[in-house]
Simulated assay, not measured.
Amino acid sequence: MKDQKEEIPKRFRIPDGLWEKIQRLLPPQQAKPQGGRPRNNDRRMMEAIVYVLKTGVQWKALPRSIAAGSSAHDRFQEWNTAGVFQKLWRAGLLEYEKIVGIDWKWQAMDAAIIKAPLRGCANRFKPHR
């Protein structure tokens, strides 16, 4: 049988060094009192989440060779609730600060607010025409 990891394109795989850092931020697994199916591999689920975030594919359209979309989405929700992604963002900023440096005294926020293209006056239905 093929190793499932082969099915994930290389650009979506998490390098070992990064995985060690991510793994420390994950919450401990909860024991299932009634047993059931074994929990999916955490690294596999994180790679599936990275795939969805990088490609923009819907969870249900996630290739089955990578992971079941519902399983990956459930894990995403679990880790989001546990604050894993906020911790990961913070750890990344702190590491970048150590290596390159961040001028914490100066920050800027950028945002764009635009009207929906089909809701504007120019595209509105005009019954008199």
Rank of each mutant, 00 (worst) to 15 (best):
K126L: 09
K98W: 00
I49L: 05
M45P: 04
M109R: 12
R13E: 02
Q107G: 06
A31C: 05
W104A: 08
H73Q: 12
V84T: 14
P28H: 09
N80L: 09
N80K: 15
D3M: 01
L26S: 03
S65V: 13
D103N: 15
A116T: 09
K2M: 07
L94E: 14
W106N: 15
I49E: 00
I102G: 02
K21H: 08
L118V: 12
A122F: 13
R129P: 09
P38D: 04
L53Q: 15
I114C: 07
E78L: 15
M1W: 09
L25H: 07
A111H: 01
A82R: 09
K126F: 11
A112F: 06
N80V: 00
A82D: 13
R24Q: 14
A68G: 08
R44W: 05
K126N: 15
L118E: 15
P9Y: 00
I99T: 11
E7N: 15
K10D: 11
D42F: 05
G69T: 00
R129L: 15
V57L: 08
K5T: 11
R13V: 00
A112R: 07
L93G: 05
G83T: 01
A116V: 12
P127H: 09
A31T: 12
S70A: 12
P15Q: 08
M1D: 09
S65Q: 13
L18W: 02
R90E: 08
V100I: 07
G17W: 05
A112T: 14
K21E: 15
I8T: 10
W104N: 11
A91P: 02
W89C: 08
D110R: 03
G35C: 07
K87D: 11
E78C: 06
A82C: 06
I22Q: 11
F76G: 00
I113V: 15
L88W: 07
K54Q: 08
D42Y: 10
K2S: 08
A82W: 09
P27Y: 01
C121W: 12
M45T: 03
M109I: 12
Q4M: 05
K54T: 00
A67K: 01
P38M: 02
G101D: 04
R11D: 11
P27H: 05
Y96T: 11
E20S: 14
D3H: 03
C121T: 12
N40C: 09
W59E: 04
I102V: 13
D110E: 11
R13Y: 03
A122V: 07
R24Y: 08
G17C: 09
E78F: 12
V57M: 06
S65M: 10
R37H: 08
P27R: 06
P63C: 06
D16K: 15
Q29M: 09
R11G: 03
H128N: 15
F85C: 02
A108E: 07
L88F: 05
E47C: 04
L94D: 13
G83M: 02
W59I: 03
L53E: 07
E78H: 10
W104E: 10
Q86F: 06
